[in-house]
Write a protein that binds this DNA or RNA. Structure first.
Lengths: 340, 340
DNA sequence: TTGAAAGCGTTACCAT
DNA sequence: ATGGTAACGCTTTCAA
């Protein structure tokens, strides 16, 4: 029984100097070997000794020291805001991260809740990222963008429903969603269309543009749009259903499938027939919509594949200084089932 | 019309030396002023000059240089794995992040997909985090833990259904969920209980322990447990429902509410009455369970509040070297509605 | 083929 | 009260 069972040496962290000492070479040689520097030829025995010494000490290079010396990093900063508003976002962000890592960037998510736009931008700038991709749920002002650029960020992106002056924009135009839903309803003869507006603040960022898109589509025809505030709970839905007939609506775009399910249940419990008296359309095209009766019509959102996007980031990092670019990522299509 | 409209100076990034030059003081004074160093008194006019110079240049300190000099950082690394398995996790991670920021830690999420356990640990170690909290969906081996500790990490945690040797463990014991569901069903007289096993690999980490918990609870009584592989799509659910009566089951724990909804729909479409012929229990206690007919019984999972957890991380960072600690975070309770 | 040394931006110690 | 200087860990140029 050893007294020190695998105690991972609380001692100092090994540096390249320690590796050099143990291998009997200089720090420069260690660097050459471990970075596979092709510009200089090191004898094979030396290489082996260095490698063995590094392994024995458990040496891992210090990223901060390295990028300090190099004068730049390959970190892409992805600030995370309040809460993941849309489920679609997660998938997208994970894929984008993978795409960027394939290009040898280090993607780092950094939570920035409770900071105002300026403080947040300064906090990000301290990390000296080479690029920043800020979702719409985090604040980003033109001044914040300026701070980031001065701190060496080659490219700053916003990712969300709307662009911000001075940054490249990856647009997920939510107006398309509302427009798509309303056009679908109008094609099916509906003219008095409610639009559910979730009262959760985190969703406002999406709800407002969806309403705007709905209004735009309606004004192209002769339909009327009626915003309907709603909390995501049964009481709120029941209250809305109770005064439904006073609203004189023949259709509703329910913001998303979850709200549609909530509202559809309340309408049915109040004796309002779907789709006979009122058509219901959700969004997200979740599996659960197919399980409801009537099956829920929905708006399917598809995002472009992300590898081209990662390439875009890479290109703008390497040749910055261009005009802000704008890219639309979202395609919305109506999926007709039984509820409309 | 100016020719250079707000062009954010593509020049070099301003350093504290630039601020010192502009303010006509030394770099040390700049550091004292900007860090509000109380150990040294600087005249108010000097302070003002320094502050103004910093603002004018848009100076932001360089975090890497700072932590290099300090010899340590306050970064807590949160590797992100495959995919957010449980919705509960997100909320939890966001709260934990906020709690740690309150203690002045910088929380950084770092995607580590496609790396094996050793490479991932090395990549994390390069960042010299003071603590690492690894969700169960990312690989973490005892060797990886050793690498991290040798690189200066004061505390390494696993967060998930099971502990890993050598790291502190924040346990979310999924066996409780399965056990809770099965006990609930047994109390209501059911004895032949199916347990849905989602075939998505990302969910296996949760599904296996839930099954184990179910088995354990069943063996305490006289119930039989039958694992039921299921994909999250209608075809798979319909196929399972079609052979349902051959299984001879009187109840099913459907892994979670979404799978419960899927299966319940399929059972009803196949003419199997719920709960008369077969009881159904989900998990997560989602809103949608209350909207189904019959209303879905579920297992509610509650996590401990996170501030004590953030304090725990802080304590273990400050006084490391203790034995690995183990903390159970999850409490599961059955919620009886109509489907059981 | 290898080694010595400079320098990246910051802060803390020690003089002035 | 303020300024000079060394040091953190690493890479790279230059010299041997």
């Amino acid at each position: 029984m050893s007294q020190l069972p695998e105690q991972p040496t609380e001692g100092p962290v090994p540096t390249s100097a320690d590796v050099a000492r143990l291998a009997g070479v200089s720090r420069a040689t260690v660097s050459y070997v471990l970075n596979n520097n092709a510009a200089v030829r090191i004898s094979d025995p030396t290489r082996r000794r260095v490698r063995e010494a590094a392994t024995e000490l458990g040496y891992v290079p210090h990223a901060a020291a390295r990028s300090l010396r190099a004068g730049h990093s390959r970190m892409v900063l992805l600030p995370t805001g309040n809460f993941p508003a849309a489920p679609l976002h997660h998938h997208f962000l994970h894929e984008l991260e993978a795409g960027l890592r394939r290009l040898d960037y280090t993607v780092v998510q950094y939570g920035s809740l409770g900071l105002d736009a300026e403080d947040a931008a300064r906090a990000w700038a301290e990390l000296r990222p080479v690029a920043v991709i800020a979702p719409g749920s985090v604040p980003l002002t033109p001044q914040g963008i300026a701070v980031l650029r001065r701190s060496g960020a080659k490219a700053v992106f916003t990712l969300g429903p709307e662009p911000v002056a001075g940054a490249h924009a990856l647009i997920m135009d939510q107006r398309q969603v509302g427009g798509c839903a309303v056009r679908h309803l109008m094609e099916r003869g509906r003219r008095r269309i409610g639009v559910v507006m979730p009262e959760e603040p985190a969703l406002a960022l999406f709800a407002e543009p969806r309403l705007a898109g709905a209004r735009q589509a309606a004004s192209a025809g002769t339909a009327r749009i009626e915003p309907l505030p709603l909390h995501h709970d049964e009481e709120s839905a029941a209250a809305l259903a109770a005064r439904w007939r006073t609203l004189g609506l023949d259709a509703v775009f329910a913001y998303d499938d979850l709200h549609a399910m909530l509202l559809m249940r309340a309408l049915q419990d109040a004796g309002i027939e779907v789709p006979g008296e009122t058509a219901v359309v959700g969004a997200d095209d979740l599996m659960l919509g197919r399980l409801l009766r009537p099956r829920l019509s929905s708006v399917r959102m598809e995002l472009d594949t992300v590898q081209p996007l990662a390439d875009l980031v890479d290109r703008l990092v390497r040749r910055p200084g261009k005009e802000p670019e704008r890219h639309d990522l979202l395609r919305a299509t109506a999926v007709h089932r039984e509820s409309s």
